[in-house]
């Protein structure tokens, strides 16, 4: 079973929910898909080792064979190639690695090279939680290939619980993180900004056909628009995490709050059961 934790707005508490949920359940795979800033391990502090490189194919153009016809330039949807009067010029960071330029070149002037854009890491076997994380190298623009490769390492099967910490927003890296999950927990905050971005995230999960529910973090700040929206749209509110100083202090010290406020393990487990029920009822329908 794969449960993603996502949000429209950043900084609402995705990692807090993912880590505390993982620790409450115990035996899970935690997949940190926020590859531009993987931060689950700030709270778990496990030793992690490199597991594999993320390799993207990238074209190499033989300047001697290139006749500057511009067919590859016209073909490339990402404008990763250009042709000057003196020959071709390549912009590897714009390339998505589809290989189309290679197929379309009438002179067979294009071959494929490899480029390493990130790395997949894994916690050691003695860690509390089986943590996997992707890391996109600084300056690299494309997070999705790292996320896709990271997710190929998920072990599926009877009794496997997988928690996926998604990046914020509603763009490609989020879609890559949410693809094929059984459920999505959307974490939001009770502010107009939180509501606005929650509504965008709801549109995404609805379009992807993923059952979902909402966690309101820092609950009790005074704005009730999020709850009104959830109630009127028949969206289950799975949990409310109060706007409490103790939680903020623990967060600032890098301590998952269920480790000290242990009654919350029960709350997370109950929520997990609710999620499982919602998944089952969706499958039955």
């Amino acid at each position: 079973m794969k449960i993603a934790v996502a949000s429209g707005k950043g900084g609402t508490g995705k990692t807090t929910v993912a880590v505390n949920l993982a620790l409450s359940i115990g035996k899970v795979q935690l997949i940190d898909c926020d590859v531009e800033e993987p931060d689950c391990n700030l709270f778990l502090r496990s030793d992690i080792d490199k597991y594999q490189d993320v390799i993207l194919p990238v074209p190499r153009v033989d300047g001697n064979k290139c006749i500057q016809c511009g067919k590859c330039v016209q073909f490339c949807q990402y404008n990763a190639l250009a042709v000057l009067s003196s020959g071709p010029m390549l912009f590897p960071q714009l390339c998505h690695g589809c290989g189309g330029c290679m197929l379309i070149c009438p002179e067979n002037a294009i071959t494929e090279d490899e480029r390493i854009t990130g790395v997949i890491e894994r916690s050691r076997s003695d860690a509390r939680i089986d943590l996997w994380q992707g890391e996109l190298f600084t300056g690299e623009p494309m997070a999705s290939p790292v996320i896709r490769q990271l997710k190929t390492n998920i072990r599926e099967g009877e009794g496997e619980v997988v928690i996926i910490d998604s990046p914020p927003g509603t763009a490609c890296p989020v879609i890559a993180s949410l693809r094929d999950v059984d459920y999505c927990i959307l974490v939001t905050e009770p502010t107009p900004f939180g509501l606005n971005d929650l509504m965008l995230a709801v549109e995404v999960v609805r379009q992807m056909g993923i059952p979902f529910g909402v966690i309101i973090n820092r609950n009790g700040m005074g704005y009730d628009g999020v709850e009104v929206y959830c109630n009127s749209g028949d969206i289950p509110v799975l949990m409310k995490i109060p706007d409490k100083r103790q939680i903020a202090v623990l967060y600032s010290e890098g301590i998952p709050f269920v480790m000290q406020m242990t009654e919350w393990k029960g709350h997370f487990l109950k929520m997990f059961e609710d999620v499982c029920r919602q998944i089952l009822s969706t499958k039955e329908n």
Binding site: G70, Y78, N79, A80, A82, L84, L94
Partner: peptide, 19 residues
């Protein structure tokens, strides 16, 4: 034509200048 594309707008525009 490339003003609202997802990326590489500068490359596309420069290619037009060259062409």
């Amino acid at each position: 034509a490339g003003s609202s594309g997802p990326g590489g707008a500068g490359v596309q525009a420069a290619q037009q200048m060259i062409n």
